[in-house]
């Protein structure tokens, strides 16, 4: 009795088809020549990609989302990695409580966080601004980075850091020369995933976006609500390809299932 067996493999195959169906359909639809959502398309063309190139609101949203995701990733790593170091390596009172505090935001639905941020940011005039969106996304990415990096640091072999200190390395030098280099794959994966988390974040952005600043997922929601043509499919193909590249890179480095799971 090795492996999965034919019955289980077949069942899994059917579910895989269902999982992939929407994505495959979107890709096919992107090359549609029709004016509306018709599947299978009556003809194929690249017209929706050309249309996309001329759609200023969507392109502006792509740029804004990329800017936000970069800032969010950089800031989350900047704040999250030191915090993870302290939580894993330090020995201080209230450490466990603090760990739980940092993980708590992951439990609260983004719908609630988004609402709370809307109520908080409106009087501060931070809604529909770059700083507001960046801070909003960080409520999701910062706890994520802290959790992932705490795990990454704690799975490093204990003795390697001890070895560095017996060889005369000061605590900060141990972190710099041993801990961080060994955690680099995890760090890259963590950065890539928090970029994706921020780039795809929809609900918090919906609460915090406005005419002045609107992210890509928000613009896509607006577009799908109003019209049903394959333009969004063309955009989706580009996003899927970009996501795939990032995911494959991360998988090569650490394994996504491990990175995303507990």
């Amino acid at each position: 009795m090795n492996g999965a067996g034919p019955v289980l493999s077949t069942l899994a195959g059917i579910v895989y088809a269902l999982i992939l169906a929407p994505i495959v359909v979107v890709v096919a639809l992107a090359f549609s020549a029709d004016n509306f959502i018709l599947f299978p398309p009556s003809g194929y063309s690249l017209r929706w990609f050309q249309q996309l190139a001329g759609n200023t609101p969507l392109l502006n949203a792509v740029v804004l989302s990329a800017q936000i995701a970069c800032l969010v990733t950089a800031l989350s790593l900047l704040l999250g990695v030191p915090a993870a170091l302290a939580l894993d390596k330090g020995r201080f009172r209230g450490q466990e409580a603090l760990k739980n505090f940092f993980l708590a935001p992951l439990l609260l639905p983004t719908l609630i966080v988004g609402l709370a941020l809307l109520l908080f940011f409106t009087p501060l005039r931070l809604t529909a601004t770059l700083p507001g969106l960046v801070l909003g996304h960080m409520t999701v990415t910062l706890p994520f980075v802290i959790r992932m990096m705490t795990t990454a640091f704690s799975t490093l072999p204990d003795d390697i850091e001890a070895a560095a200190s017996t060889l005369g390395a000061k605590p900060w030098r141990v972190i710099w020369r041993v801990t961080l280099p060994l955690a680099t794959p995890g760090l890259i994966a963590c950065g890539a995933l928090s970029f994706l988390l921020s780039f795809d974040e929809t609900v918090i952005s919906l609460f915090l976006s406005g005419p002045r600043a609107s992210t890509l997922p928000v613009e896509m929601v607006r577009y799908v609500e109003g019209r049903t043509d394959p333009l969004v499919a063309a955009l989706s193909v580009i996003l899927i390809v970009a996501t795939l590249i990032i995911v494959v890179l991360v998988e090569r480095l650490v394994g996504v299932a491990r990175a995303v799971g507990q």
Binding site: I160, A162, A163, S165, T166, G168, R173, V178
Partner: peptide, 20 residues
């Protein structure tokens, strides 16, 4: 005294070589 000031050569059971 902290470990890094003691000048003791420690050979670990796992060897603890720096893989990088």
């Amino acid at each position: 005294q902290p470990a890094h000031k003691r000048n003791m050569g420690y050979v670990f059971q796992s060897y603890a070589l720096f893989p990088h």
